[in-house]
Design a protein around this nucleic acid. Structure first.
Lengths: 210, 210
DNA sequence: GTCTATAATCGGATAGAC
DNA sequence: GTCTATCCGATTATAGAC
């Protein structure tokens, strides 16, 4: 009874720093965000940030850990049986369009990857680890498919959020998904035996599954 | 006669700064490169760089102006009649693999775009202006095609050069081109009338009409 | 046009007291 | 766990002498 609503004293400082850092990275990017600024925003001291996350890259990696997973969409695309490209694209985009800034998190992530080799490496790990669930056959091909899917998704996000190329920047998610979906399908499960083939051919072939 | 071989006294200082800046950006990225470092490298004073290019972003934009054109490949893809996707991809990659660092220029460019809105805007301009040569019909569609092509190309470069995702990072250019080429073809001239269609299907649909 | 010197900040990181 | 104080390094930008 008395233990029910136990308020976590001061447990939230770390999480608070994380939230502040995430917001700051979203707004100002990786280089544009200082540890001091994060601390100020979180209402704590800068040294605290340090002794929690060691250094700036560590903080960034920690921030990226939980809230936004850069891979799940891709995971779905390759591993899941229902590789509906459109859904994958829409989900991928939706994930980055939660916060206030339009795709601010993506910009921050991209910036971080550019600047810190450590972050880039962390991304590689994430990608590699999340790629194939249990399928042991055709490792090489699966890896290739996964990489190709990811390349298109990341390029799309880049065009939409960072550079702002029209009509990709302003179009509806659903519309963009319609444009890019087939490519994802192609990469994820299109036939590319050896000499390669052209894109899937999808819907026009009666029930394309799914 | 006497004027033939006139050596340009000290005309090369500006160009020298540009070369130095380009090399520096390639190696250390945008944020990692200081104006001072550029000046040191060029053998001139930092103030000179300033009074030539105003600020860091200006220098970067100037650097990007001439040596590497981020769009020509795409221009070929959309405008040129011979929209050979594979060629486009290979040309695009080859362009970034000239210098010492593997794709260092791309990383630098990406970093610059991330950080400086001004650079991002400059990129937007470049993209927009280089997109359609003289074709006035189907502006909207052409723009979309162009944007999609660019999204895939940039995503590929990102995966290959910046993050280093395998097998995209180590594979031969030609091989990567074989993987991605069909997608470029699809975006550049695949049929997507209104309700959209799925990837080209290319060869199997006789003359796709364009 | 070119460079020296310096101003004015601001960044990350550490040591050590509460 | 938390914060104060501080070191040290680097950067942009400017003022002004040759």
């Amino acid at each position: 009874m008395a233990r029910v609503g136990r308020r976590p004293g001061k447990v939230d400082t770390r999480a608070q720093i994380l939230r502040a850092a995430r917001a700051a990275f979203d707004e100002a990017g990786y280089a544009g965000t200082s540890i001091r600024a994060v601390a100020r925003r979180a209402g704590v001291d800068a040294a605290l940030v340090h002794h929690f996350f060691t250094d700036k890259a560590g903080l960034f990696v920690a921030v990226m850990e939980l809230p936004v997973d850069p891979v799940p969409a891709e995971r779905v695309a390759v591993a899941g049986g229902s590789s509906d490209g459109e859904r994958v694209v829409e989900g991928f985009l939706a994930q980055w369009e939660q916060g206030p800034g339009p795709g601010g998190s993506f910009r921050a992530l991209a910036q971080g990857i550019c600047e810190s080799p450590r972050i880039a490496e962390r991304m590689r790990e994430l990608l590699a680890e999340g790629t194939w669930g249990g399928t042991g056959h055709g490792r090489e091909v699966e890896r290739r498919r996964s990489a190709l899917v990811w390349s298109q998704l990341v390029g799309l996000a880049w065009a939409r959020y960072v550079v702002g190329i029209e009509p990709l920047a302003s179009a509806d998610r659903a519309e963009v998904a319609r444009w890019v979906g087939p490519t994802i399908d192609h990469y994820a499960r299109g036939g590319l035996p050896a000499g390669l083939r052209t894109p899937t051919g999808g819907p026009q072939v009666a029930e394309a599954g799914s």
